[in-house]
């Protein structure tokens, strides 16, 4: 059994500082195990968010040695020797210690115009594996929000949050856009209201995704292409000008009742 020094940020919205804890580290342990050991012994009030401890719920995201990681999937023996620094995600306001206020993401979720499928046939819809697979990749998302945390557009620019949905929601829009059953058209909405254009495809989101979703290549770039097609297509442009639309706009789509 080895000992390890954990440098953990403690504090709240009014400020805080690092505190060092020297604790036992056993074979095979992950960062969350060691944080739990600190809680169970020296600091029962050390705040951290977690649920499944299996990489499935996305609750325990934090910045480990400066990089966003799931604490439950980061093995201590994979980290460089020496002190391990754990800080809360930087992009979100602090609640306490390692827990941040991620309500920005839930607010963005409320603004997603719902799926609008055709009426269901009696024996269910028919869809083919190759058609659902594109959306399935994005639905692997466990909502750890590390892609949001690492995105430059909002990490260093709080003011952008009101115009920018972020990578987590770009994959959601891409999923709906590619959904075999969906009849809503959110392309203008994603461009105008959700700030898709702010993304300059640096792929930082893809790099941190614990589900290895190819956020940039498979969601954001195709979404940008579709949005550009819709926006600059002269026929669609003319349609908007003369107020005739063949597809529902996203703003209307937002109030379409799903079944």
């Amino acid at each position: 059994m080895a000992e390890v020094t954990m440098r953990v940020w403690r504090g709240d919205a009014s400020g805080g500082d690092f505190e060092n804890y020297t604790v036992t580290q056993n074979e095979g342990e992950v960062v969350l195990d060691v944080i739990h050991r600190i809680q169970a012994t020296e600091a029962p009030d050390l705040a951290c968010r977690w649920n499944c401890k299996a990489g499935k719920c996305g609750s325990c995201a934090a910045e480990i040695n400066g990089k966003p990681r799931l604490m439950c999937m980061t093995r201590m023996d994979d980290l460089p020797e020496g002190t391990v620094t754990v800080t809360p995600m930087k992009t979100f306001p602090i609640i306490r210690d390692l827990v941040t206020d991620v309500s920005f993401n839930f607010a963005m979720a409320e603004r997603v115009p719902a799926l609008l499928p055709p009426p269901m046939p009696e024996d269910g819809y028919r869809m083919f594996q190759e058609d659902v697979e594109r959306g399935q990749e994005f639905r692997k998302c466990i909502e750890c929000f590390m892609c949001q945390d690492v995105c430059h557009v909002i990490r260093d620019h709080e003011e952008n949050k009101q115009y920018y949905a972020g990578p987590r929601f770009f994959i959601r829009y891409a999923e709906l856009e590619m959904h075999p059953l969906d009849q809503n058209d959110r392309r203008e909405y994603v461009r105008e209201e959700m700030g898709l254009g702010y993304c300059n495809i640096t792929k930082c989101c893809t790099e941190v995704c614990p589900e290895h979703i190819k956020i940039t290549d498979n969601a954001i770039i195709p979404l940008k292409e579709r949005v550009v097609d819709a926006h600059y297509d002269p026929v669609a442009w003319l349609g908007r000008k003369i107020g005739r639309r063949t597809k529902r706009s996203a703003t209307e789509a937002g109030v379409q009742p799903a079944p």
Binding site: P44, D45, A47, R96, V99
Partner: peptide
């Protein structure tokens, strides 16, 4: 219970 009431896992 040690500490305050805000996000206190021990509590």
């Amino acid at each position: 219970v040690k500490g305050g009431r805000a996000y206190n896992p021990g509590w």
